[in-house]
Amino acid sequence: MEEDPRLQVFKREWFENKDCLDIGCNQGLVTITIAKKFFCRSIVGIDIDKGLIDDAKCNLRNTVRKKQSQDILARGSFPEGLNSGALYERNVSQSSNEEILYTQCYPSHPREHDLLQRVSFHCENFVENMNVCPQKFHAILCLSVTKWIHLNWGDSGLLALFSKIWRLLKPGGVLLLESQPWESYKRYRRLSEAIRTNYSNIHLHPDQFRDILLDKVGFRSADTITDNLSGTVAGFDRPIIAFKK
């Protein structure tokens, strides 16, 4: 993910020492890399799919574990009294799902050491319910998510998404929006009866999203930070627009 062109065009100032939210984080790879590369103060990744959130939490633990191993190899030895089987202690959190966290036992770079504290993942339905993020954010990412919200909740769900993002952003905050083109909707219109119905009743198309966010929702500016990302995985070479509140 370090080489993902989408990350290469992001500005450090949007994230560094900032509180961030990644909507539809999938397996959390972009979320984790943003925390590492841009040193955000905190970043929350949410997704409606519990399986993907479990994968994201696993990827976070593996990222910290890999950095830990690299530090040890670089030093050439383990700390006194610590062997490879004791690198991590298992602690059960007090959260409702009794999530297992891995705490490092070997000192490393402070920004790597606190990755488990700065990055968190939650299974959430952002459109209908949002319980884990009462705070507001400096940056919100919504990358390749709008189509799925649009197909599952129709125009009203899309507008609810935009409205909620606006409320959760701090003044001066940025929304990074990567929308799927209307042509890609057709392929999935028969996934369920609800999606079939929503698809038939959609009036707001992706080429209208910019005007909706500026004229209806209230964002003050919109800058296309890329029109075509060469080298991006096929299907993800879409424009990304930075909307400022």
Results as ranks from 00 to 15, higher is better:
Ser120Thr: 12
Ser120Ile: 07
Cys123Ala: 11
Cys123Glu: 05
Cys123Gly: 00
Glu124Lys: 02
Asn125Gly: 02
Val127Trp: 04
Glu128Thr: 02
Asn129Pro: 00
Met130Trp: 04
Met130Thr: 05
Met130Gly: 00
Asn131Tyr: 00
Asn131Asp: 12
Asn131Ile: 05
Asn131Lys: 14
Val132Glu: 01
Cys133Phe: 11
Cys133Thr: 15
Pro134Val: 08
Pro134Gln: 14
Gln135Tyr: 09
Gln135Arg: 12
Gln135Glu: 14
His138Thr: 01
His138Arg: 09
Ser144Met: 03
Lys147Leu: 15
His150Phe: 06
Leu151Arg: 03
Leu151Asn: 03
Asn152Arg: 08
Trp153Ser: 07
Ser156Gly: 05
Ser156Pro: 03
Gly157His: 03
Leu158Asn: 01
Leu159Val: 06
Leu159Ala: 02
Leu161Ile: 04
Leu161Arg: 02
Phe162Gly: 05
Phe162Arg: 01
Ser163Pro: 03
Ser163Asn: 12
Lys164Leu: 03
Arg167Gly: 03
Arg167Glu: 13
Arg167Ala: 05
Leu168Thr: 08
Leu169Phe: 07
Lys170Ser: 13
Gly172Lys: 13
Val174Ile: 15
Val174Lys: 12
Val174Met: 05
Leu175Asn: 11
Leu176Gln: 01
Leu176Pro: 04
Leu176Val: 11
Leu176Lys: 02
Glu178Val: 08
Glu178Tyr: 13
Gln180Leu: 14
Trp182Asp: 08
Glu183Val: 14
Ser184Ala: 15
Ser184Arg: 14
Ser184Phe: 07
Tyr185Ile: 01
Tyr185Asn: 09
Lys186Ala: 15
Lys186Trp: 02
Lys186Asn: 11
Lys186Ser: 13
Arg187Tyr: 10
Tyr188Asp: 08
Arg190Tyr: 13
Leu191Gln: 13
Ser192Trp: 04
Ser192His: 00
Ser192Lys: 02
Glu193Trp: 01
Glu193Gly: 03
Glu193Asn: 07
Glu193Arg: 11
Glu193Gln: 10
Ile195Tyr: 06
Arg196Trp: 04
Arg196Phe: 09
Thr197Val: 12
Thr197Pro: 01
Thr197Ile: 13
Asn198Lys: 07
Asn198Arg: 07
Asn198Met: 06
Tyr199Val: 06
Ser200Cys: 09
Ser200Met: 10
Asn201Gln: 14
Asn201Ile: 08
Ile202Val: 15
Ile202Leu: 15
Ile202Cys: 09
His203Phe: 07
His205Tyr: 14
His205Gly: 04
His205Ala: 12
His205Cys: 11
Gln208Asp: 14
Gln208Ile: 10
Gln208Val: 13
Arg210Ile: 13
Arg210Val: 15
Arg210His: 11
Arg210Pro: 06
Asp211Arg: 15
Asp211Pro: 06
Asp211Ile: 04
Ile212Gln: 08
Ile212His: 11
Ile212Asn: 05
Leu213His: 05
Leu214His: 07
Leu214Asp: 06
Lys216Gln: 14
Lys216Gly: 01
Val217Thr: 14
Gly218Met: 10
Gly218Val: 08
Gly218Ala: 11
Arg220Pro: 02
Arg220Tyr: 11
Ser221Val: 09
Ala222Thr: 08
Ala222Met: 09
Asp223Ala: 10
Asp223Thr: 15
Thr224Trp: 01
Thr224Cys: 12
Thr226Tyr: 00
Thr226Asn: 10
Asp227Leu: 10
Asp227Asn: 12
Asp227Cys: 05
Asn228Val: 10
Asn228Asp: 11
Leu229Ala: 05
Leu229Gly: 05
Leu229Lys: 03
